[in-house]
Amino acid sequence: MKNFRILFILILGLSIYSCTDDDDSVTPGTKVTPNEEELITTVQLIFSNEFNVILDSASFNDPDGDGGNAPSIDTITLQSGTDYTVDLKFLDASDANDVEDITIEIEEEDDEHLICFDQSNISGLTINRSDSDGTYEIGLKSLWVVDSNASSNSGVLKLTLKHQPGSKDGTCAPGDIDVEIDFPVIIN
């Protein structure tokens, strides 16, 4: 019976040990602020004329990131017979009070990034990248030439930001997709 008593004391001890961790709150991990991951929530296309006067802009916006609320996508409206200088901005606007400009980071690593424009059901629109990393184009700045007889029949412009570390060769093939947005296009 002596052994049994030892056993009983042991089990009692265990139960107490099991109950000591009764703190009801969950301690968050070591992350300081939530959602600090490098997020791109917003892409802006800023259309200017040759005198740097902003004519128009179009943007993609998904401040709550993947899932949740669906993103909003503007339609790009172009005037036929017009030339545009287009500046691209990539932003992290997940915190409205602290919008981060990711464009700067892309510029810092311009030899690893390429922006590609793919048109479908659009005619008479020519897009040429006008910036360079020293060897290849980047695409943060581009020149859009809209012919006088240009048209768009439910046209779509696919804008892709490719991350091509070590494999950038001026084409869109290598690397992985960081951003891919289909903008509807109207040409007046």
Partner: peptide, 20 residues
């Protein structure tokens, strides 16, 4: 048997949450 466990996320990405 009694099991008590605590999961902590130590990264920015949080596919599953912190939990006990």
């Amino acid at each position: 048997s009694l099991v008590n466990q605590e999961n902590s996320i130590n990264s920015f990405r949080d596919f599953i949450p912190d939990y006990k």
